[in-house]
Computed example of a mutant assay.
Amino acid sequence: MPAEDRIGALAARWAAEGRTLHAIYDDATRPVGALGDDVPVATLATFTAGLAAGGDEDIPCTLVADVTVRATHQGQGLMRRLMDAAAHDAATPLMALHAAHPARYARFGFAPAIRSACVEVDCARFRLRDPAAGTVHEAGTHRADELARAVAMSSAVLRFGALTPALTGAESDDGARCLVHTDDRGVVDGVLTWAFLGWTPRAQVIEVRAESYATVDAHAALWQTLCSTGIASTIRAADSRLEDPVAWMIEDRAARRVTAVTDGYSLRVLDPARALAMRGYSCPDTSLVIEVADGTGAASGRWLLAVTRGRATVEPTARAADVRLGARELAALFLAGTRADALHAAGLLADGRDARILDDLLRWPVEARSGLHF
């Protein structure tokens, strides 16, 4: 695709997402041949998505992407200026970003919130113990985003941690193909996009680009179909759950191998009260006072959190705190991707009792899973 067409396609996708580019420019005198002052020296893009956290509606979340600082301008506080401005302008209780090196963003209050497994499947050995339920169909990728959104919204438990839209960019993904699963009533309950990467000296590889499913049966059937295409010996996916039930649904567990475990996206909590109130809970009914400390002061406060039948009310209070933690630690624990007792052992939570309370409060029946790379 010509460069002009690629830029046009990117601009169209950004417009559809509502993505805004924030940039800093340098108008200093420069030698002939250097990049002009119309080229930014630092950038950061933001757009909004919904984070599924088990509540009645998704939590609005500001996504941060396209973070760059030119090598010639490192160490001048440019990224701090952009991050502070983005946090100030955000009208959401949470921010999220994907980072190859999450530790670089700790100083801005971000903490890794979920873990993802990279998996590799041997097609010849992948066989379900029982016949797959429902029916798998091939679909056009232009429908993938729409179908995946409908699937995602139908399962509050399995979509925990998902950022919508789950399949952004599928329409313009050259060479991508799409599989759709329907249940016995004909309702779409699974969508998977994939691409054939071609032949390598050791394997013929299919890559899973994105997957959204409302039932484990749909998930299993989509993978069984993908393994049966006959064009590949290996399937790779980079956004799987560590504890995937499909591993126990196949005859040979060794057919599915975890090749790496990585951090998924990182979260920053801007408004703890609103975030906690919109989250769902699987713990018994409870009431406690949570105190959050934030170095910037923006997310600091003390609130009475009362959980009744999986839903919470959160109100400011002057009562003594039952649990104390930092805003970054809350970000790490928010989706139960990290256990509070691990943070206590690492010295990030002072009180072991606080850790036990937080683990009981924030647990969820399944691991959080992203589904969106941005």
Rank of each mutant, 00 (worst) to 15 (best):
M1D: 07
I7M: 15
A12W: 07
W14R: 13
L21A: 12
I24H: 05
I24W: 03
Y25W: 05
D26L: 07
T29N: 08
G33N: 01
A34G: 13
L35A: 04
L35W: 11
D38T: 12
V39T: 13
P40V: 00
A42C: 05
L51C: 04
E57G: 15
A71M: 06
H73P: 00
G77L: 06
R80P: 03
R81C: 00
D84L: 11
A85H: 14
A87F: 07
D89I: 00
D89W: 02
A90L: 07
M95Q: 14
A99M: 02
G109A: 05
F110T: 01
I114H: 04
R115S: 12
A117P: 13
V119K: 14
C123Y: 14
C123N: 02
F126H: 01
A133C: 09
R143E: 15
A144M: 01
A144W: 04
A148D: 09
V151I: 04
S154F: 03
G161C: 11
D174E: 13
A176M: 01
A176W: 01
R177A: 08
H181E: 01
T182D: 15
D183I: 06
G186E: 10
P201D: 15
Q204K: 12
I206W: 13
V208K: 08
S212F: 04
S212M: 12
S212T: 12
L226S: 03
C227D: 04
E243D: 15
R257C: 10
V269Y: 06
P272F: 01
A273D: 06
L276I: 10
R279H: 08
G280I: 10
T286H: 01
S300Q: 00
G301Y: 00
W303T: 00
L305V: 14
G310F: 02
A312C: 08
D322Q: 05
L325P: 02
G326F: 08
E329D: 10
L330K: 00
L330N: 03
A332G: 00
A336H: 15
A350C: 03
D351V: 04
G352H: 12
D359K: 06
D360E: 13
L362N: 06
S370E: 07
G371Q: 02
